[in-house]
């Protein structure tokens, strides 16, 4: 017996762009940064820096909040 697919009653995107903030990425197993280094992902959701000012790229560290818009 095959299981019917889960209902899609709610939006649950894999990628969410936070206004003036990071990109949230769900369900990834690894992320390659701009230097080509591949970082394993150990969380259900990660935040990727979009402002390029994070001290721990490719991840967001909240620095975008102190950058004037």
């Amino acid at each position: 017996m095959t299981r019917p697919p889960a209902p899609r009653d709610f939006d649950h995107p894999d990628v969410v762009l936070v206004p003036h903030g990071p990109m949230l990425l769900r369900g990834a197993e690894s992320v390659q940064d701009v230097d080509g280094t591949v970082h394993p992902v150990e969380r259900p959701v990660v935040a990727l820096c979009r402002c390029d000012k994070s001290s721990r790229l490719p991840w967001c560290d909240g620095t975008h909040k102190v950058i004037p818009r």
Binding site: V16, V18, G21, L24, A47, R56, G62
Partner: peptide, 14 residues
């Protein structure tokens, strides 16, 4: 917590 809470804050607020 630098890394985790940069994610958690969006999960929590939105």
């Amino acid at each position: 917590h630098v890394e985790a809470d940069a994610i958690h804050e969006h999960l929590a607020s939105r």
